[in-house]
């Protein structure tokens, strides 16, 4: 059977299918966050008035009514829902209860530092994992054992513990990096490592197992019969095959890193979505929380599209199926 490139129509259909499912996921995420707001205890207007005034009390009916009118809570539920969705289409995530500005503005300013942090962590985790794998898999019992132990150890470290340890070691005891670095390059190093080290353990375990399997493949022997050195065989042949499961894991990891960033950002006092989320949850600022949930959902979707893309780049066989 011929395995020519798929017809353009088939490829278009595939891409359209992917986009449609992405939109559906976002719609479901948006709907859930909208209805969860309604399920929260307490009247929303009362909540808002309490937040604004920093008190916890009952408010007169006219003040409640004014707030209800201002935020549109007095309209039928379905209208509010559709209005919310229409807002999303225009890129309007609602108005923050505490900051009196659009949620997009609240999140927007903080998005870039978080993206730098998470993507940086993913890249560094890959670098660590690949280096450890290349250097230790099938390099004798001792090196292999050290590599496997390193991965098992780092994979089991909690973020907050790594964060505190790095902070004490490299910002306090040996002050190479600032304790509170904001989003300066020097201040980014420790937060990135905080997230990258445990992830590199996870990735490394997956890489190691696959690398082991690949090194037993006949095409590796073929490469050796051509006179290739062990290092070249690992780099040119084995690695590309071994990274595939790691790429799948990366889609999940990118999402998990966004939630992990909450911890790294609080420890290092770094601006970012994580910080905003913590504040918003504490203040019961539901529109901001909902906005962040949507952004994280979008990150997951984008990450998975990127994973698909990376996968077909590494393994062209998947372009067919």
């Amino acid at each position: 059977m011929s395995t020519a490139a798929p017809a353009p129509a088939a490829r278009l259909r595939r891409i359209a299918g992917k986009l449609l499912s992405a939109v559906l996921v976002l719609l479901v995420a948006a709907s859930i966050t909208f209805f969860v707001q309604l399920l929260l205890p307490g009247d929303r207007a009362t909540v808002i008035l309490n937040i604004r005034n920093g008190r916890d009390q009952q408010w007169p009916a006219e003040e409640i009514a004014a707030i209800n009118h201002q935020f549109g809570f007095d309209r039928p539920l379905i209208v509010q829902y559709l209005d919310y969705l229409a807002g999303l289409l225009r890129g309007d995530l609602g108005t923050s209860y505490t900051e009196f500005r659009p949620v997009t503005a609240v999140i927007g300013a903080q998005l870039l530092p978080t993206v730098v942090l998470t993507v940086g962590a993913l890249v560094v985790a890959w670098l660590i994992a690949v280096t450890v794998t290349l250097l230790t898999v099938r390099r004798g019992r001792i090196l292999g054992g050290i590599g496997a132990a390193f991965e098992a150890f780092t994979a089991s470290l909690p973020h907050y513990w790594v964060g505190m340890l790095l902070l004490v070691a490299f910002a306090v005891q040996i002050p190479i990096f600032p304790v509170i670095g904001g989003d300066t390059p020097a201040g980014t190093v420790l937060p990135v490592l905080t997230l990258a080290v445990p992830l590199s353990g996870f990735l490394g375990q997956v890489l190691r197992e696959e690398f082991h399997k690949v090194l037993d493949q006949p095409f590796i022997t073929t490469a050796r019969t051509r006179g290739m050195s062990d290092a070249a065989v690992r780099l040119r042949h084995a690695l590309r095959h071994a990274v595939l499961p790691g790429i799948t894991l990366s889609g999940w990891a990118l999402g998990a890193l966004v939630s992990g960033s909450v911890i790294a950002e609080s420890i290092y006092g770094r601006p970012g979505i994580g910080q905003v989320l913590v504040t918003a949850v504490n203040n019961r600022d539901v529109p901001t929380v909902a906005g962040i949930v949507l952004v994280v959902a979008a990150v997951y979707i984008v990450a998975n599209v990127l994973v698909d893309l990376a996968y077909t780049l590494v393994d062209p066989r998947l372009r067919i199926s």
Partner: peptide, 15 residues
């Protein structure tokens, strides 16, 4: 010395 392994499907790097 040239060496031809059995079964080219797995003896050539598919990627």
């Amino acid at each position: 010395i040239g060496y031809v392994l059995q079964d080219a499907l797995v003896s050539l790097d598919q990627l």
